[in-house]
Every structure is written in structure tokens, then in C-alpha cells.
Nucleic acid binder design. Structure first.
Lengths: 340, 340
DNA sequence: CTGAAAGCGCTTACAG
DNA sequence: CTGAAAGCGCTTACAG
């Protein structure tokens, strides 16, 4: 109802030309006008309850002031803080986020991106990316400014913000080694995701650096970064390598799966088995035992992604930038001296 | 780059008028055309990589196929499942969600809504609403289809989807009463929110129904639905009413605050003190002891809100509908027989 | 069944 | 410093 007032109405009421109204309304061009004129226009506009139609402006300027964000599962607790940081940065510059919960399926993701592009988003943030990802090809072909967050693709063609997975695993393994653990199992994540691969490689490197032998039987792959997948993998791991004294999980949900299996089998944590996670997602300080884990600043990740995208959208930067955040180790109650 | 192709280009390439292209592209109007013509147009369009400009279409049709979602804090675990359900429903009908993390401040919320309206959203979902909320007045004045989710306003002017707070509290108190608890404390939430007020009223009604005396000293108000506020309130509660054998918390985060204080004071849960939460947010099954709580189907809540908004946007319904979801009680390890 | 015209509401070179 | 004109890319009555 209210949205019937247009620049033309304001112009008429103020006795000026529509173009003058337009100029009065944006702070950048307001200085072109006499103070008296712009003051009158502003007054009339607010009296009439005028609200500029952003769609019309977008069509004319070819900039929608809108950014598309593609997320695999908003329900995964790592994403909300990323989104929150991203929005804070974007919002300050007048951008609004179109958030799409796209799931893990590439076909569906492509459809979602297509819809976002049809909506003329000025930029795209993808949190869904696999190491080789056809959806990325699709985005690149569209020529829209693009940033990946949390995960990167193998062929580093696009700017990204990720955590230093090797560093994180290094901190964790150093901690276990210092506690006297020698036989450490790994529950690795999906290897088609950069986090899955990077953390597994980081594990191997850190074991080597600590002079520990990596037992092939003690490296097990989870089908997904999820608690039930962790449960399943933990079962396999403890069957194949019952002598391990510690389990490194590629993320916190997998670590919770380890908790489940340990409880089932009567293994006490940390007395019989130390467990480390990755992410430091909300609430893992409250589980029992409180989880030792690699802390990633997800909010900061989102903010950095926002800044990167902003500079891309303004052509301030050419892209090809990888921002790598340094994680830290949070020692809690799930790790202890290795059992004899 | 790709986005240079327009209806005009397609029309020229296909040897028809732009309006014919437009008709060929939408399934609804396609039947107006000869199969041969529309087939050729579709072919040419895809060959040229044509993607309709949604902004231009929106300007013309005055429908943006876009919905604004205002959330106080996406980082609060109740909201992601709501969002997920909402998007699923909206997405199926071709709508995209603009999600704004607006915080708790009314001034800022109004600004966010203003921006969403400027972007010409076809509808609005608010998860931020207080019992009396100036932002709602603002939205109503704008005349945009509006649905509230999770919380409702006092003066039921707008359609909403909420949980039956009285029922939830009833289930919880019945459970405690059955376990022999007579002196039950309440950590109530903020009373300016419908959930805070409704749960407190539900508590009182349920105590009465069970023939239990409500001790005024044993009802304490938390400043916010947050863990630290719960901690602070739990301290006050246990000081004022040290003889209580159970604490009912108005949500899970408050319940976790109770856990913190109980641990500090050497009270064992559930042996010395039973605790019940509200929401059944993710991970509360993993805390120690696993939290007994009132389960709300947040995803369903989002889906219902989506359907309500859809019918409002299509003028299929007049609004004024309140959808109330029935919660269930999930009994876990934080409640037990009352101590002697 | 298809075309020609108008217009959604804004902004921005171009004049003056 | 302000106005007049054109056009962003689409859709939809209106003709024929």
C-alpha cells in the first residue's frame, strides 16, 4: 500500500524534476544541489513516506547490492558464525545476503547458483566447494566475483578463506605426542573436500615430524563430516587397531561419534583413549568429557570472506588471494597421558 | 561477462519479436505459441546462454520472488532449523530468502526491515518479535505480507507460528511431579518476549494443576535467553530457595547456566537437583548429564511459516492465523526422583 | 498465434 | 545548479 510513492510524486510535490530528486536522495550526489533545494526534497520525501525502489535502481545501475551465499547445510554449527561475520561486513557496505541452503548435491547447487545469478547478485560466496567442483566452473563462466569460504578447490583458481589445516593437525598431534601417545589413530574426513584431504595430510606430516609411525590400519575414512559417520568409522578403527591410545578426528562431529563408540565398548575417555576434534563448534565444551579440539575462528573467516568479496566487487583486487587463518589448540578434558 | 544476452538478442537470433521470446520462456504462457516457434526460441536461448534478468522482470511485474527473513542471532541454534524449513518451502515455489541477522535492537531491526522493503521483498518473516514491538507496527504500515515465527506479539494482529508453551511446561512439570518433586524453582526468560511470558504462565498453571505451591522466592527472571544469564539467575535462585529439588529453565541455554552453578556449588545433577530445559537444541543430548527438555520441532515451525507466508503472498488467505505446534517432552538423564 | 507499444521506477550522461 | 531525455530488460494488455 505505502509503496505507491515514486520519485515522480516527490518531484511534483517538491516542484522539481525527478532527476533532481534522485540527486538529492543519494549523499554522493547531494552536494551538486543547493542546500535549500535538497533540504526541501528530503523533507517532502519523508513527508510522503517515499522509499526508493531498489529494484528499479538496480536495473538502471546494473548493481543489485546483493550477494549470494551458498551453504551446504545451515544446520551444521560451523556455518552460522561464518554467515554472521560475512553479513556484518557486507551489511556495513549496504549489501544484503541472499542465503541459499543448497545441500550437498552438485546438480542442486548449480540450480541454486543459477537462480542467484538470475537475481543479478553482485557476488557469490560458496561454502559448499569440493576439491574439483563443476559448480565452480559454472560460476567462473558466469564471471561473477566469487569467494570460497571454509573449503577451497584443488586448482586454486578462486580466492578463498580457509583455516590452516596442517597447522591445526600439527598442534593436535604435538599435544598428543607430549602426553606420551605413540599409537594414534585418525578418523579422516571425505577426501574430495579440501578440509578432509588437508587434515589427513597434516596428520601424516605431524606424525612424521614427531617421529611417530603412522599405522595404515589406524587411518580410517569417514563417509561424511557427521556424527553417525564418525560412529561407523570409529567402530572400524577400533576393530582394526585396538592398541591405539588416542584418536584424532578430522572434525568435532566425528569426535562425538568416537565418544559414542568408546562408551559402547566400555572405553573410558581420556583414561583409555584420548580424543581430539577439529572446529571447536559450540557446546563441545559442555559434552562429557569436554572436548579437546582445534579452534577455528569461523566468524573471522566470514568477515575475511566478506572483505575479499567486497574488494572483488569493487575491482579493487584481481582475486587469486588465499586467506589462511591460523587455528589454535584448545585443551580440555578429552586428552590425557597415554595409558601404559 | 556472460550476462550480456537479452531477450532482444534471442528474439533477433530466432527471428521473432521479444514478446514472443518472453512467452516462450515461461511455461505458463508457452501454450499460446506454436510448438515449433517455442521450440526454436528455447533452442536459440540456450545456445546463446541466455539467462533472464530477474531484476527487470521484477520491476515490470512488481513481484520480486524474494522474501525477507529477520533473525535476532543466527548463531542461536534454534534458528538454523527454522531457516532450513522455511527455505525448503519457499524454494520449492521459486522464492529466494534474504536473510538478515538483525540483533536484538529495535532501531537496527527497523533499519534492516526498511532495507528489505526497499529491495521489494514480497513478504517478511520475523523471528525477532517482542510482545509489543514497534518494528511490527512499521511492517504493518508497509502493508507487506508478514509472518512471525517462534515468538508472537501480544496484540495478535499478525499470523504466527509458535510452540505451545503452556503445553510444554505442563509436560515438564507433570514429569517432575511424578518423580516426587514438590519444591520446583523456575528460571523464567525475559517477560517482554512471548516465549518468556508464556512459559512462566504455563509453569504457574501446571504447578497449580499438580497441586503444588509456587514459592515466589523460587521464581527468578533471567535477563536474556543465554547461558551466562542463566548462570546469574541460577545463583540467585539457589540463594533464595536452597530447598528446591528441581529447576525448570525456560530454555536450554538457561538450563546450561544451571549446570554451571550446580557444579560450582557441588550439587550433583540429578541426584541433588533435577533440571529441565526447553527447546531440545542440538547437542543437549551430549552434555553431562544429558538434558531432559521440551522438544520443539523447529524445522516444522519454519515450514509452517513458509506455507503461511506463501498463502498470504498469493492472497489465498487473509492472515490472522496462528499455528501452534505441540511440543513433546524428551526425558534424559538430568531428571530423577526428588531427594528426600 | 504473433507483433508493436507502453511502461515498471529509477539514474546519468548531456545540455544549458 | 537543474532539467529533459533516454534507457536498464523485461512483460502484458491491446491489436490484428
Amino acid at each position: 500500500m505505502a509503496q505507491r510513492v515514486t520519485v515522480l510524486d516527490v518531484a511534483k510535490a517538491a516542484g522539481v524534476h525527478p532527476s533532481t530528486v534522485s540527486r538529492a536522495l543519494k549523499p554522493e550526489t547531494r552536494s551538486l544541489l543547493t542546500d535549500k533545494v535538497s533540504a526541501r526534497i528530503l523533507e517532502v520525501a519523508s513527508a510522503l513516506g517515499y522509499r526508493p525502489n531498489g529494484i528499479a535502481a538496480s536495473l538502471r545501475t546494473r548493481r543489485s547490492q546483493t550477494v549470494g551465499v551458498v551453504i551446504p547445510d545451515i544446520t551444521n554449527p560451523v556455518f552460522p558464525p561464518i554467515l554472521s561475520g560475512l553479513e556484518e561486513v557486507l551489511d556495513a557496505e549496504g549489501y544484503i545476503a541472499m542465503v541459499a541452503n543448497a545441500g550437498g548435491d552438485a546438480e542442486r547447487q548449480r540450480l541454486v547458483v543459477d537462480r542467484l545469478l538470475a537475481r543479478q547478485v553482485d557476488g557469490l560466496v560458496m561454502a559448499t566447494v569440493a576439491r574439483r567442483d563443476p559448480v565452480v566452473d559454472f560460476c567462473i563462466a558466469a564471471g561473477t566475483p566469487l569467494v570460497m569460504v571454509n573449503r577451497a578447490e584443488a586448482a586454486r583458481r578462486v580466492s578463498s578463506v580457509v583455516s590452516d589445516d596442517a597447522l591445526g593437525m600439527g598442534l593436535a598431534i604435538d599435544h598428543l605426542a607430549a602426553l606420551g601417545h605413540r599409537r594414534i589413530g585418525l578418523i579422516a574426513g571425505p577426501q574430495h573436500l579440501s578440509t578432509g584431504l588437508g587434515r589427513r595430510q597434516g596428520f601424516t606430516a605431524a606424525m612424521e615430524r614427531n617421529g611417530l609411525a603412522e599405522d595404515p590400519a589406524a587411518v580410517v575414512f569417514a563417509a561424511a563430516f557427521a556424527r553417525d559417520a564418525g560412529r561407523e568409522a570409529a567402530g572400524r578403527l577400533l576393530d582394526a587397531a585396538p592398541d591405539i591410545t588416542a584418536v584424532m578426528a578430522a572434525n568435532d562431529l566425528l569426535a562425538l561419534g568416537v565418544y559414542d563408540v568408546a562408551a559402547e565398548r566400555g572405553l573410558r575417555c581420556p583414561e583409555d583413549l584420548s580424543v581430539i576434534g577439529h572446529n571447536d563448534m559450540p557446546m563441545v565444551d559442555m559434552v562429557s568429557p569436554a572436548l579437546t579440539t582445534v579452534h577455528i575462528r569461523h566468524r573471522e573467516m566470514g568477515m575475511q570472506a566478506g572483505r575479499l568479496l567486497l574488494s572483488l566487487m569493487r575491482s579493487t583486487s584481481q582475486g587469486g588471494v588465499d586467506v589462511v587463518l591460523q587455528p589454535t589448540l584448545i585443551v580440555r578434558a578429552s586428552t590425557a597421558t597415554a595409558r601404559a
